Simulated scan of single mutants.
Amino acid sequence: MRILVTGAKGFIGKNLIVELRNRGYNDIYEVDKETDELSLGKFIRDCDFVFHLAGVNRPKEESEFVEGNVEFTKHLLTQLEKREKPIPVLFTSSIQAEKDNPYGRTKRMAEDLIFDYGRKTGAKVFVYRLPNVFGKWCRPNYNSAIATFCYNIARDLPITVNDPNVVLKLVYIDDVVNEFINALNGCENRDGKFCEVATQYTVKLGDIVDLLYSFKKGRENLSVPNVGDDFVKKLYSTYISYLPEEQFSYQLNMKADERGSFTEFLKTEDRGQISVNVIKPGITKGNHWHHTKVEKFLVVSGEAIIRFRKIDCSEVIEYRVSGNKLEVVDIPPGYTHNITNIGNSDVVFIIWANEPFDPQRPDTYYLESTM
């Protein structure tokens, strides 16, 4: 299938083209402002499906709304009508088409042209009145509040929130792209004459801003958001995509001494904490137990023995572990335990605990693991 994409260098166009190629669609004609008329004509004559994503939403002159949203659409459809077969067209409109402003009026006019083309030619048409779209590669400080907020917050730049109680209707770019490719394959999500992205979110602007600032603070307090919440997961991915390239990394507080080191890595309120522990050869760490705290040890480098003893028993249980064979060892409550480096190199192991460490209530009690 030969696919024509207008607005190919735009936010939606870039994401769509990348995913089309991921799925094996290689004959893609990319149309943008630099495409000459001769090339455009050839693409239209050859294509089997059109994603019409091009449009003008923030011009210097109001007349550009008509030129970019109406006249170009009319020109595209006029040439498609000359084809010997009906060519399906998917068009990205906007919820602004419901409003009486220059952008909305011209988007509505373009919709009418698309529907007329479908009636005249018998071609299948897909018109999506998209709400606010968010995700990677959206241009900040242009027409997306979320892109602007992500970009500015990641760079310690100020943002302006006029009314935090404003409610935004949102769709995520990957959901948009999936829906568009479903439409390409005849499985669109249709509601009457319009099509829509099935997964949508309604969120207050102030809540979005609070989340974005919490993502930024996560580097300091080692917290990660609740990615079990679908919107939070997608917003977090969006925020991370706007990090400055020179700031992809950040340092952790490594507590080191003659025995090795201990470094907290990630903390969550509902999924516990992850830390990294390093033990020098011949050193033993631990010799404590917990009432409720549960841990998992995973040695990824070196050789060690993990010893357990139920606090009211004398029997010692041993597990020999090494980075040559990854094996998780559960640390149950009520068992005092330690870990000893029995090799010639450092032991590096990952610890997961079922709760973040609370210095006010550490739930950690010293007791020798061997008697």
Results as ranks from 00 to 15, higher is better:
P158Q: 07
P158C: 06
P158L: 02
P158W: 05
P158R: 07
P158T: 07
P158F: 00
P158V: 02
I159S: 02
I159V: 09
I159H: 04
T160R: 10
T160A: 08
T160C: 04
T160H: 09
T160L: 08
V161L: 01
V161Q: 00
V161C: 11
N162F: 05
N162I: 03
N162G: 15
N162H: 13
D163H: 06
D163M: 00
D163N: 15
D163V: 01
D163F: 01
D163W: 05
D163S: 09
D163Q: 02
P164E: 03
P164V: 01
P164M: 01
P164C: 03
N165V: 03
N165P: 04
N165E: 15
N165L: 12
V166E: 15
V166L: 12
V166D: 12
V167I: 15
V167S: 12
V167L: 14
V167F: 11
V167R: 14
L168D: 10
L168H: 12
L168Q: 13
K169G: 12
K169L: 11
K169P: 05
K169S: 15
L170F: 10
L170P: 08
L170A: 09
V171F: 10
V171I: 15
V171A: 12
V171T: 14
Y172M: 05
Y172L: 08
Y172C: 04
Y172T: 07
I173E: 11
I173P: 06
I173W: 09
I173L: 11
I173N: 11
D174C: 03
D174R: 13
D175R: 07
D175T: 03
D175C: 05
D175H: 11
V176Y: 09
V176H: 06
V176I: 10
V176L: 10
V176T: 05
V177F: 09
V177S: 06
V177H: 10
V177C: 07
N178I: 05
N178M: 08
N178P: 02
N178R: 14
N178C: 08
E179Q: 11
E179G: 08
F180G: 00
F180I: 00
F180Y: 13
I181W: 04
I181K: 04
I181D: 04
N182G: 07
N182K: 14
N182Y: 03
N182V: 00
N182L: 09
N182S: 13
A183S: 14
A183V: 06
A183C: 08
A183E: 11
A183M: 09
L184S: 02
L184H: 01
L184R: 02
N185P: 00
N185Y: 00
N185F: 00
N185A: 00
N185W: 00
N185C: 01
G186E: 09
G186Q: 08
G186H: 06
G186S: 05
G186A: 03
G186P: 01
G186D: 07
G186Y: 06
G186K: 07
C187E: 15
C187R: 15
E188Q: 12
E188P: 03
E188D: 13
N189D: 12
N189I: 08
N189Q: 09
R190V: 11
R190A: 11
R190E: 11
D191V: 13
D191K: 14
D191E: 15
D191L: 13
D191I: 13
D191M: 13
G192R: 06
G192T: 07
G192K: 06
G192I: 03
G192L: 01
K193R: 14
K193P: 08
K193N: 13
K193Q: 13
F194W: 12
F194R: 02
F194V: 04
